[in-house]
Amino acid sequence: MFSLTYEYKLKPTSAQVARFEDWLEQCRRVYNYALAERKDWFKSRSCQINACSLQSEYIIPAQTKRPTYASQCQTLTAYRKTSGNLQRVQSQVLQQALRRLEQAFVSMWEQGHGFPRFKKSGTMRSFVFPQVGIDAVRDGAIKLPLIGWIKFRQSRSIPDGAKLKQVRIVRRASGWFAMLTLQWDVSVPDVMPHGEALGVDVGISHLAAVSNGKLFPNPRPFEKLERKLRLLQQRVPLKS
């Protein structure tokens, strides 16, 4: 599989812009609620048994499992049936907000990033449609679930044979943009290694030293240009 992302500037109507902003706000609330649930669970497990706080304590039953992406998606599905605000947003878009939180925790565990933070109002900049319908792009317009057709400025044509996998709607200072992830069912050939492997060490006295014994001299461009600058300054006539 071979994937590329094409970005186009949207030309939404005022009603569509209002809907975009409402969806961003609902995604932000789902993200913050899920983060609060996970944070409470971690805090309830971080207290020592013989040294609980006298003011307040997070008490969650011991048999309660750690919140995960799958469990929170189930909770979201049940809560969405009773919430009119969430029913205005496509279910998969809300699930992508939970997946975004899951990726933040994976980055914390595997890459040493900090604990995920709550998002303030207006800080959520994008939401994702993981699936779109067939022939969703046509004549400079894209059809999004529950929103309909939206015009965009087609700055470049979409290659033939590409499948639209997902659409990310992004809000920026210059307007709204759609990032289309396109995929081709082709295999990219791997580059076969050839020749001998060499080790390169960058130094000070020499620009580089290679493992086969070859040394590359340091060109020292600053010293040469400094000499040239000194000569040019001598040719400048002194002001009376």
Rank of each mutant, 00 (worst) to 15 (best):
G213C: 06
A34V: 02
G114W: 03
V89C: 08
S174G: 03
A208I: 07
A51H: 12
I142G: 06
S121N: 05
Y33Q: 08
C73K: 03
K65G: 15
V89I: 15
Q63V: 15
I150G: 10
V210W: 01
D201G: 11
E196D: 11
L215N: 04
W109Y: 02
L94Y: 07
I158K: 09
A51S: 15
L101G: 09
L98E: 01
Y8K: 14
Q183F: 00
Q154M: 08
L232F: 12
R153Q: 13
G199Q: 10
F115H: 08
R88S: 07
S3H: 08
L35G: 07
K163Q: 14
L229Q: 01
A209V: 04
E196M: 04
R38D: 12
S211P: 00
A62T: 15
S187P: 02
L164M: 08
H194N: 08
E196A: 05
N218W: 02
D160S: 05
I150N: 06
S44R: 01
S71G: 14
D160I: 03
Y6L: 11
A208T: 05
R19T: 11
Q72E: 15
E57P: 08
Q154F: 11
F222W: 00
A178M: 03
F216Y: 11
Q26F: 00
K43E: 14
V200F: 09
F216K: 03
P193E: 13
T82L: 14
K239M: 10
V191F: 13
R28K: 12
V170T: 15
R227Q: 09
Q74H: 13
F118D: 03
A141H: 02
F127V: 10
K143D: 12
R28G: 04
I49L: 12
L198G: 02
A104Q: 04
S187H: 07
W23Y: 06
V236Y: 06
P221N: 00
R66K: 08
I150E: 13
K163G: 09
F42C: 11
G84C: 09
C27A: 09
V17L: 05
L164A: 09
S53T: 10
K151N: 04
T5L: 03
T5I: 10
Q234T: 00
Y8A: 04
G84N: 15
R80M: 07
F115P: 00
Q96Y: 00
A97S: 13
A173P: 01
K39Y: 02
N218K: 01
K165F: 05
L231W: 07
A62L: 15
A197R: 05
D201M: 07
T181R: 05
K165P: 10
D139L: 13
S121L: 00
L180D: 09
G199L: 11
H194G: 07
G148H: 06
